[in-house]
Amino acid sequence: MKIKHDDIQDKLHDYLKGALSDELTLVIKEHVSVCNECANEINVIESLVKNEVPDPGDIFFSNLTRNVIRQAKVAKPQKLSLWEFLRLNPIAVAALCLVIVLVVYNYSGFISVRNLIKNTENTMATNKISEHKVKDISSAADDINYLEDEYEDTVSADYDDEEYAVMAL
């Protein structure tokens, strides 16, 4: 495996951490043994990494959380918009969807029931009108029939009388 000097320099920190493959580690080890620049860089990195951070003490860390939460509240109260609340609560979203579906369903049901009632009322009204019309027509027909019958009776009665008169002569 052949790697350029610049690429090896990029990997020197990982080499020191032992984070590279065995093959790459061997290649870099061989390169460092003959390259002063990379060997010096390794010395620098090792010396830098040895610099430790002083421990501020447990009291600092134990008080830190409380102080941060308290001061964060004072700095800016957390306000959650409805959209953010819904984004973060899938159960709330599901509940809201259910409510919307129920409302839509009820509303559409209400409309259809209202239409049904309206249609029924219209049908009933139409039927009533039709019935009235039929009734009027039939009563008029009855009247005509009655009058016709009465006329016929009268005529026949007249005729009978004349007939009787002739027969009597």
Binding site: P56, F60, L64, N67, V68, I69, Q71, A75, K76
Partner: peptide, 18 residues
Amino acid sequence: EAKDITQKALISAVTELR
């Protein structure tokens, strides 16, 4: 200074978390 910065940074982070 690091203690002060740590506290300030964490307060900023919590405040800006949203």
